[in-house]
Amino acid sequence: MTKDLKNKGLATKAIRGGLERSQFKETSEAIFLNSGFVYDSAEEAAGRFRGENDGFIYSRYANPTTSVFEERMCLLEGAEAARATSSGMAAVNLAIMSHVKAGDHVVAPKALFGSCLYIIEQILPRFGVKVTLIDGTDIDQWQKALQQPTSAVFLETPSNPTLEIVDIAAVADLAHKVGAKVIVDNVFATTIYQKPLELGADVVIYSATKHIDGQGRCLGGIVLSDEEFIEEVVAPYHKHTGPSLSPFNAWNLLKGLETLELRVEKQTDNASRVADALAENAKVARVIYPGRDDHPQAALARQQMKRGSTLVSFEINGDQEETFAFLNRLQLIDISNNLGDSKSLITHPTTTTHSSVSEELKAELGINSNLVRLSVGLETADDLVEDLLQALEG
């Protein structure tokens, strides 16, 4: 890690963390778009594979451009080590599957992104891992579920798409008493607004596709933790199963990090303005936004997050047909299941991101047919509000 930047500001870390220049002294990071590396001798190659000397072996294991991205993210997150992955879901899979084994117990909230829920609910039991799903906002349910030996806790906060807040510090305290690793998907809060490791979590994961790239260019993910967990648990699984981030995507993500704070702050300003405007409209039944006092867990959100979020969820006063009609009337905001983008994107979770979730669970979680999730972008806030209001009016 770049030691002399530890006490610098977030923006400085995001721009200069892990910076390595080649012999050409380029200003922007170089892209090492290669699969392999050569050695000066057979002895050097043998020593490299034995771990006796530093250097790169194969880009599936590590790559100079990808390593800069990992080091920069460590600096931002306050982590000791990291492994970058080809997508956010590759990061989720890596963090969980590298750690658990048959006979282990995993606890997670029911309120998860559809693909995350699939891994927890469908894949883990196939490998003999017991799973307990709970209401993540109810600390009593956490306490009950964690009365037995547990290998891992997995959670996302705020959750997708209902923006529920899980008390990271309280859950970490309970989990550590039974020896469980706490894995937090921090994609909605971003490293700008929430630091799970400082709150007691052991592992943080991101879909870097979202705010880190944030411009619709590429996929990526990352797992961050202490050096022991990354090097002894995550790294071997990563090396041998190959969910590696491409050097070109790593370079794109490095460019994204340079403007991350500026973009997220502006998007949050816009999201707050949009949430307030929607809350005043009679065509909207409910607005869910962690930055508003009427959020069910507003106090907890203020306690563990610096600001609200770039995401706003809300319910239309009407059924699915009327909700679809609202979406189809939007002229500026795009219908898309992605989020954290510079462009404002809106989706209907029950038929898109959470379409694989059972109807019973969707009803329990409040993922209703009139719920939409809006990822607020960088457009002029008044233009976004105008577009939403005209679509609501029909």
Rank of each mutant, 00 (worst) to 15 (best):
T2I: 02
K6S: 04
K6E: 11
N7P: 00
L10W: 06
A11P: 00
K13W: 01
R16N: 08
G17L: 00
G18D: 04
L19Y: 11
F24L: 10
E26M: 03
S28G: 11
F32G: 04
V38A: 11
V38T: 15
A46V: 11
A46L: 13
G51K: 08
F56T: 12
S59H: 11
N63M: 13
F69E: 14
E71W: 08
R72E: 07
M73P: 10
C74D: 06
L75W: 14
E77F: 14
E77G: 13
E77V: 15
E80I: 10
A82D: 13
M89I: 15
V92S: 09
N93F: 09
A95N: 05
S98G: 11
V100Y: 05
D104L: 06
V107M: 03
A108D: 06
F113V: 01
I123T: 05
L124K: 03
P125H: 07
P125L: 07
V131F: 11
I139M: 13
W142V: 02
Q143R: 15
Q143I: 03
Q147C: 14
Q147L: 11
Q148H: 12
Q148R: 14
P149E: 09
E164C: 01
V166G: 00
A170T: 06
V171P: 08
K177S: 07
K181M: 05
I183W: 14
I183Y: 07
I183P: 08
D185A: 11
N186K: 12
I192D: 13
L197D: 13
E198K: 15
E198H: 10
I205T: 10
I205E: 10
S207I: 03
K210P: 00
H211N: 15
G214C: 01
G214M: 02
E228Y: 06
F229G: 06
I230G: 02
V234L: 09
H238S: 08
G242W: 10
G242T: 07
P243L: 03
N249I: 01
K255M: 12
G256P: 02
T268N: 06
N270P: 01
A285V: 01
Q304Y: 05
R307W: 09
R307C: 04
R307T: 11
G308N: 01
L311T: 02
T323L: 00
A325D: 07
N328C: 00
N328E: 07
R329P: 01
L332D: 00
L339T: 05
L339R: 00
T352A: 07
S356P: 05
V357G: 04
E360D: 14
R373E: 12
V376I: 15
V385D: 12
E386M: 14
D387K: 10
A391G: 11
